[in-house]
Structures are given as structure tokens and as C-alpha cells.
Amino acid sequence: MSAIEQSDMSITVPVANATHLRHILGVRDEHLRLLQRELGTRIIAKEGSLVVFGPEPQVRWAAEVLQQMVSVVERGGTLSPADVRYLLNLARKGEIQEAEDLFAEAVFVTDRGKRIVPKTLGQLRYVEAVKKHDLVFAIGVAGTGKTFLAVAMALAALKQRQVSRIILARPAVEAGEKLGFLPGDIYEKVDPYMRPLYDALYDLLDYDKVQRLIERRVIEVIPLAYMRGRTFNDAFIVLDEAQNATSLQMKMVLTRLGFNAKMVVTGDITQIDLPKGVKSGLVEVQEILKGVEGVAFVYLTENDVVRHPLVQKIVAAYDAWEKRRHAPELERGEKHGDRTQQ
């Protein structure tokens, strides 16, 4: 008796045409093999459909993922193995229906024709928050697309003439007060700290176009300290690595917001590089602006990591290690609290 005949059940997923089928299967059938490997199912491609064989609930999960993949491809979207793995995780948790709007509307289309779309539910909430609010804080771990999506949304606003300029800023923490001792002009001094912002721009636009926009001051890439004394009207402002902004710097930046302006503040509060004893403005602002109308806080987790699959595991491992490391301190604190109450 064949493996298929021994299978508990089967589900057929219709596919409109051969071109769509190729996109769903992936390069050398990598998407198909990923689902089969992760779920222990067997998937056979037939003319006009994909048939999934195996035990319940694995067959149902695979079918739900394939149906979502068909929907994405029919809308003109593309999928990577990481996207397929994310959809599979949603199916396992019973949340696949929430993915209907993922990979759908492009935030921005690059000069090379690549569609930039939200790829996780957290990213989708992030994009929606920026559409609806003038000030958005995106707080999350490395690899969740905080900076990249912010720059993409800024370029989209510029392209649609919603704003006339873009301001990209970062604290140059390590440089501190020693910038004057470094060789070169101010741009050469702070360039290493601004490089990730340039990288995002070059991923989204042609290199020469980026240079022209910077020369015309349509796009400014500046250290946080150089925002002081300015007001940004008709602008899209992105403050990156905001966990390294002090309380005073955070207040200064937020009060730069002018008319017809939008600001996105991104940061990872697990990676603060400020000197010991100096409070992070990003940590503090969560309490200060809590509940203020027009302000949104979006939190991205390891579930929203869109880099190499190992990055998600690394983030989770560090998070678990931090909790174990602080557990004795918390336990001591609780015991102390008990004694105080007595």
C-alpha cells in the first residue's frame, strides 16, 4: 500500500494557472518542500490544483497556507521561504485568517520593481498606525523591519506629494562630544552612524536618484543633535535607534514636528548604549505620552523578525537568557517585599 493510500485525509487547493503554480511552488519547489518537511505531509501538484495528503490537523494547516499563498500570487505578490514559514506559524496558532491583508497593498515599489509589503501582523499594524497617526513609536527587537518600513513609507509619502522632504536622523552615541577630534567635515565624522539609513535608501531607490535628492536637500540624513532649533513643516521625519536618545533629546526631537508633518520614532529598548545612569528617552516616553490622542505605540516582537530564520531564534534565545539572568534579582526583591509587609 502506498504512502498516499495510508494517508488519513486529503484536501485539494485550486490554482488558477501554471504561472501562479510556479510562484507557489517556489524555486526548485522550495516552498513545497518546506511545507512537507515541517508538517510531514505530502503535496502533489496537478493541473489546476495542489493536493495535500496526510494526517489532521497537518493537512488542514498546509491547505490553509496554500490557499493564502494562492491569494497572494493572484494579487501580484511574491513569497519567500521566510514568508511561507510565517504563514505556517499563523496556521498552527489558528490565526491564518488574520493574514488576509498581508502581502497585499504595497507600501512602496522600488526602482527595480520590488513591492515592499508588510510581511507580519505586527508590521501590518505598524503600517496602519503610520497611516492614521502623525506620531508613531515603533518599538521592537532587531530584524523586525522598523527602520526599513519607516524609510519606505517616507519615500511613498514623498512620491505621492504628501510631503516635500524627508528627514532621517539617528543619535551618534559612540561619537559623543568627541566629534570635533575626528578628521573630515561633519558628514564624514558621523557617516558610520548614519550608514544604516543610507543602506535603506539605496535598497529602495536607485543610487543616483538618492544622491540627487540628498544634494537638493529633499532628503536629509543628519545626527539627532543637529535637529535642535529647527521646525520641520511638510516633512516626513524618521528618528532611528531612538533608545539611544536621552530624555532631553527625545523632548527636543518631538517638539520639532511642524504643520503637515509626520514622525516615526523607532528603537529597540533591549539594546541601549547610553552611559550608565542616563535614562533612555524612548523608555520614558512610553509613560509620558501614554493615551495622548494622535500618538500610537506599536510593539514588534521576535514573531515579526523578517531576516534570516536564525535571527528569530537568536532574539528568542537572548530574551530567555535575560529572563533567567534577572530571575534571582526578582526573587530577592519579592522576598524583601514580603519581609517589609510583615
Rank of each mutant, 00 (worst) to 15 (best):
F137Y: 13
F137M: 11
A138D: 05
I139G: 04
G140R: 10
G140V: 09
V141A: 13
A142W: 13
A142N: 13
A142P: 12
G145V: 14
K146G: 11
K146S: 10
T147R: 09
A150T: 04
V151Q: 06
V151D: 11
V151G: 01
M153L: 15
A156F: 00
A157Y: 05
K159T: 12
K159L: 05
K159R: 15
Q160S: 12
Q162L: 12
Q162D: 04
V163E: 02
V163D: 06
S164H: 13
S164A: 12
S164P: 02
R165G: 12
I167E: 03
I167A: 04
A169N: 00
R170Y: 11
R170L: 03
R170I: 03
A172D: 01
A175C: 03
G176F: 01
G176N: 07
E177S: 14
E177F: 02
K178N: 14
L179A: 14
L179K: 09
L179D: 02
G180P: 04
G180M: 00
F181G: 00
P183L: 06
G184C: 04
G184E: 07
G184I: 07
D185M: 00
Y187E: 15
E188C: 07
E188I: 08
E188G: 13
K189E: 06
V190W: 11
D191G: 06
P192H: 10
P192T: 12
Y193M: 08
Y193W: 14
M194S: 13
R195C: 05
Y198L: 13
D199W: 10
D199P: 09
A200H: 07
L201Q: 06
L201I: 10
D203W: 00
L204G: 03
D206Q: 13
Y207L: 13
D208A: 15
D208E: 15
K209Y: 12
V210K: 04
V210Y: 03
Q211F: 07
Q211P: 00
E215C: 06
R216A: 15
R217P: 07
E220M: 11
V221A: 11
V221D: 04
I222K: 13
I222N: 06
P223Y: 07
P223K: 01
L224R: 01
L224Y: 02
A225R: 02
M227T: 03
M227E: 05
M227S: 04
R228A: 09
G229F: 11
R230M: 05
R230N: 03
T231H: 09
F232A: 00
N233S: 13
D234A: 08
D234L: 08
D234E: 14
A235I: 10
F236R: 03
I237F: 01
V238S: 04
E241D: 14
A242I: 07
Q243D: 11
A245N: 01
S247K: 15
S247I: 13
S247G: 05
L248R: 12
K251C: 07
M252N: 05
V253C: 04
V253D: 06
L254A: 03
L254N: 02
L254F: 04
T255S: 12
R256F: 05
G258S: 11
G258N: 02
N260I: 08
